[in-house]
Structure formats: structure tokens, C-alpha cells
Computed example of a mutant assay.
Amino acid sequence: MNSPQRPEIVRNPTRSVAIGSISIGSQHPIAVQSMTATRTQDIDATVRQIHDLEAAGADVVRVAIDSRRDAEALMEIRRQVSCNLSVDLQENYRLAEVIAPHVNKIRYNPGHLYHHETERPWQDKVRYLMQVARDNDCAMRVGVNCGSVDPAVKERFAEDDSISPMLESAWQHCAVLDELGFDRYCVSLKDSDPQKVIEVNRRFAEKRPDVPLHLGVTEAGMPPDGIIKTRIAFEQLISRGIGDTIRVSLTVANNRKAEEIAAGRKILEEIAAGRVRSVVDYGLKTLNIISCPSCSRVENEAFVELGEQVREMTRYAEQYRITIAVMGCRVNGPGETDDADLGLWCGPTHVNFKRGKDTIGAFPYDAILPRLKAELDQLIVQRSAGV
């Protein structure tokens, strides 16, 4: 397919990293990515979605695997698609050697490496991943997320400092890869708060201007607010030369995933045209609903509908400075709801409900909204009383 014409944007002089048929970094065009939302083992549905994303202009498509059966499905998917594929290893880093011959890029989360083989130093695990990538002609992404930082790193910083642990983790992993002589990697540092995304990426780029950066606002939520939050971060970073590949992460139904690509391309076009606005111009509501993008990790597709229901139900509270998180899986849910005032993370049959870091309980999907409203009303009374 013919790729859409790319806008010209002046960039930081990062090194070039090849991912299949494209390269990111240096002065290569900023690549636009997305991630499949279908179950990986549903091969036909996943292939259709990859084709849809590619037709929309995706340069790289990421697919998550969490088991050997997922990996085997992705092998068959690869036989049916020709796009540049990135694999998300989730928490099972040992699957890298199984799937690496069939993909162009391996993404791992430093915070998830401690879940398996806890007695093994994380440096050894990174060495293993690097060797697998090198042996199979794969690029790598060191994907740091605010809600899943390695506990050993996080405990060294103040509880209210979420940026420093992310930076320390990223710098540590870069240092190990550098020592191993492997430079075919990029880094992502993601948060649901666009201002923190700006700050953490700016600080990383000051220390490691050579490393290509993958930009994104995690759990940005539903359109249009999810696009606005992402645009705020992208405008402030890309207009300063920071950023080599992007993903707009939206909570949308499976048949709307191509909207992520369209949104990303439009943002890049407008930045290139100099249409960069101040944060206040966007008029975001005080009530902040964060929700993770629909992806193959979601254990119940009712998660997307629940996000829409939460948005509608909470409209009466838009003037209050309250954050509600709606998360779709066990991978991101437990940790990335901690900073929200009220947090929901969705399992196969029940929704786990938290207030801050405290668990309230697990409720059926058809019973969670009344319980959420009761807690929200109580929180509003407390905020109004200055408690």
C-alpha cells in the first residue's frame, strides 16, 4: 500500500532504529502505531483488524501474547499479514524466543519482569531479551508505564513522585542494553496525565537525546477527551523535537480501532502546520475519566460499554476535581487505578472497585454503576465540605 504523505517536523537527532520495512528516529518520518483489540487466538478477527489498521496508515501494529497458544496464533497471523508487527510480551518474557522469528519488534515492560523467575536478576532477563532480539533481527521497545514500575525502583522515591521512578527504570535498562552493545531499541514513558507525559519525556530526552522515543498517553480514555489529552502531550513534545513514533490510545469498540491512526495522523499534520494551542484552549472538564485503550488483554468486551456508561452517569459531577479510572484487564488494572479517586478494573465476570488504593469489593457488571454513583456522591459531599 502507499503510505500517506508525511508532514515535515524538525526533530531531535536520535539514532535510527529499523523496525521491519521502516525506521524510526534520526530524521525518519514519525511513525504512527496502534494495537489490536481482538483476542489474539481469534486469528480471523485479528487478521481483519490488522488489515484495517494497515489500510488506515499504521506503520507498526502491536499484538499482545500471554501464553504459548497466543504465540502460536500470532505465528499464523504473521503468515496472513505483511505489516510490521510488534509483540507485547505482557508478563511472560520467556515467550520472546518463541515468537521473535515471526515479528519485527519486541516490547517489554521493565516493571513486569519481576513477576516471573523472581530470584533471577532483572539484568539477566534483559540480557536474554536482547540476545533473542539480536538473533532474530528484531528491534526492541523498553515500555515504562506509570502504574507498573519495578517495586525495587519505586520504593526508593517519595510516594507522590511518579516521574522519578519511571526515569530511573528507563535509564537503568538503557544502560544495560548499551553495555551489551545493543542499540536497536527505543523507549516509551507513559502516564494518563498529559502533563506528566510531557515532563517525563522531556527529562529523559535531556539525558539520553540519542534514544528514539515512542510517545503516548496511556489510559487517555474515550474520544473526544482521549484525543485532546493525547494532543496536549504530543504538541508540547513534538513541537520541541521530542518523539519518533506515536500511538493514540483510545477506549473504542473493536470496529473503531482505525480511529487511533486517523487521530495520530491529524495531530501530526496540525503540529507540522504550526497549529499548537495552549492547554486552556482545549476546555477539558475538571472531572477526569481515564480508561485504557481497548486491546487484546481485555477480558470482557463489556469494558468498553461500561466506560461509556460511566461517562454518561457522571456528567452531573463534571465541575468537581475527581479522577475516575476504568481499566480493562488484570495487567494494568490493579496498579494503574491506584492514583485515581475511584477505580474500576474489569475481570471476566466482575468489576473490581477501589477507592484510592483501598479495595471496596468486586461487583457484577450490572451492579457496579449504582455502587460507583454512591461512592461518587459521598466523595462530592466530602470535597464540598473541604474534607
Rank of each mutant, 00 (worst) to 15 (best):
V10R: 13
R11M: 10
S16N: 11
S21E: 06
I24K: 08
S26T: 06
H28K: 10
P29W: 13
P29L: 00
I30N: 04
V32N: 02
V32W: 02
S34P: 07
M35F: 03
T36W: 04
Q41P: 05
D42H: 12
A45S: 12
I50P: 06
H51T: 11
E54N: 12
A56F: 09
A58W: 00
A64D: 06
D66V: 03
S67G: 13
D70K: 09
L74N: 06
E76Q: 15
I77C: 04
R78P: 03
S82F: 04
V87H: 05
V87E: 04
Q90D: 14
E91H: 07
Y93P: 06
Y93T: 10
A96D: 12
E97D: 15
V98I: 14
I99H: 09
P101K: 12
H102Y: 15
V103R: 03
H112N: 15
L113R: 08
Y114C: 11
R120P: 00
W122P: 00
W122G: 09
D124A: 10
V126Q: 07
Y128K: 03
L129A: 08
G143K: 01
G143E: 00
N145I: 10
C146P: 00
G147C: 14
G147K: 12
G147E: 14
V149Q: 05
V153I: 15
E159L: 13
D161I: 14
S164R: 15
S164V: 00
P165M: 12
P165K: 12
S169T: 03
W171L: 15
C186K: 02
V187W: 01
V187L: 01
S192L: 02
P194K: 04
P194N: 04
R203W: 12
E206A: 13
D210N: 13
P212R: 07
H214M: 01
H214S: 03
T218F: 12
D225I: 06
G226Y: 01
T230M: 05
T230N: 08
E235I: 02
R240S: 14
R240W: 00
I242W: 05
G243L: 10
D244M: 09
D244T: 08
T245V: 09
T245Y: 01
R247P: 02
S249R: 09
T251A: 10
N254Y: 06
K257A: 11
A258D: 05
I261N: 02
A262L: 07
A263W: 02
G264E: 11
R265I: 03
L268K: 03
E270V: 00
I271Y: 12
A272R: 05
G274S: 08
R275Y: 04
S278G: 12
L287I: 10
I289C: 02
P293F: 01
S294F: 07
S294P: 12
E299L: 15
N300A: 07
R311S: 14
M313L: 15
M313H: 05
A317F: 10
A325D: 05
G328H: 11
G333L: 01
D338N: 10
D339Y: 11
A340I: 06
L342Q: 03
G343K: 06
W345C: 08
P348W: 00
H350Q: 13
V351S: 07
K357Q: 14
I360Q: 12
I360L: 14
G361V: 11
A362Y: 06
F363C: 10
L372R: 07
L376G: 01
D377K: 09
D377W: 10
I380W: 02
Q382E: 15
